[in-house]
Design a protein around this nucleic acid. Sequence first.
DNA 1: ATTAAAATCCGGGAAAACCAGTAGTTGAAA
DNA 2: TTTCAACTACTGGTTTTCCCGGATTTTAAT
Lengths: 211, 211
Amino acid sequence: MLEHKVKLAIVDDHLIVLEGLQKLLTSAGDIEIAGSFTTGNAFIEFLKSNTVHIVLLDITLPDVNGMDLCREIKKIAPDTHVLGLSNHSERSMIVQMLHNGATGYLLKNVSAEELTQCIHEALNGQVTFSKAVREIMARPSMSELKGVPQLTKREKEILQFIADGKTTSAIAAELFLSPLTVETHRKNLMQKFEVKNVAALIKEAVQRHMI
Amino acid sequence: MLEHKVKLAIVDDHLIVLEGLQKLLTSAGDIEIAGSFTTGNAFIEFLKSNTVHIVLLDITLPDVNGMDLCREIKKIAPDTHVLGLSNHSERSMIVQMLHNGATGYLLKNVSAEELTQCIHEALNGQVTFSKAVREIMARPSMSELKGVPQLTKREKEILQFIADGKTTSAIAAELFLSPLTVETHRKNLMQKFEVKNVAALIKEAVQRHMI
DNA sequence: ATTAAAATCCGGGAAAACCAGTAGTTGAAA
DNA sequence: TTTCAACTACTGGTTTTCCCGGATTTTAAT
């Protein structure tokens, strides 16, 4: 009977992925596709007047960030389970999604069987990951364990200038500061990233998409 | 009649994408899915004994790089058209695919109509891009126009060490070289990247996935 | 065998960064 | 009002990088 089926929604910016997921899930008899959305806001509008048991949620969306959207979904519909479904494989992304209320996380290389299984586990309230995500979670890198350094507004500004190749005195002139002030900010940045020079600083910052 | 249909293959590591593309293309009556492959080698084996008029080819595959695969496909089957279909939106990637023999390039946010249209244009021998790719090609950034610097083996090695935060004298000790040698390599690296200091060098290198 | 590229090393100097602290002011939070 | 964080600036020094050339040797390509 229809009311016993799982109402599932899909939010992804790629039509190809929407079609593929629908095809994969249609053969799972107990899942009903409640809707497919290419933007976060379209889904939020839908959610306000429809019941969705579980949503497959991409992180990269054209209008909002999937992580922020996750938080918003949980506000509007706390009983709706959210499964992240993305190509982003960084542990920090995965953890952030869970922190924002997601019940699980899958990479897009998930198999059909796994997808269905994860959906059911999530509906049972189990935190669930696809195999590839479990492997990532099982061996975190040092930088992932450390977390992302929290920078002040000025530090971010200085960091951007440094990455653009500007010297301390050039930055000072541009921001109407003393070069000694800029030096202090550099020192603080290097302490936060636990590095000893600018090369390592910029590498870490770029790899964490802070620049 | 069957023999008048376009024989199309799909190579993508994501099952979801394979299913989605098949669903989208099945409704286009004149296209026949000759096969779907999640690895480059599987497709190459197939291609050796089957006719494929056109292939939709992802760049990120588990066993080979899609760009190298493109070149190999054109060697084995010069008449097979290759359309890149990827999330990679860097102009350098697009140009490299064309350089390796692709007839066109689409981003995965392509619409169903566009997909079909691009397939037909490619079959007509026209270099074709999805709308999003045309926009990218219409306004290249300075760094994209410059191309990726070609580094020697030693330069790559030195660059990696620099990015790891090592000083010139530390690198020299590790490689059993004179610090002056390392200095010269640094100088050459900065000339190739057209930057003035290590911060800008590392930023460029990381952003181009050279580190 | 010849040529070209890569790799090596150097002089001399100036500029810039890094180090390890210290301290005052301002604005936001409690 | 008080406390705290952010931002500011400084001392005195050392280390490192960048600059602008130049040159020889080794390896790879022709």
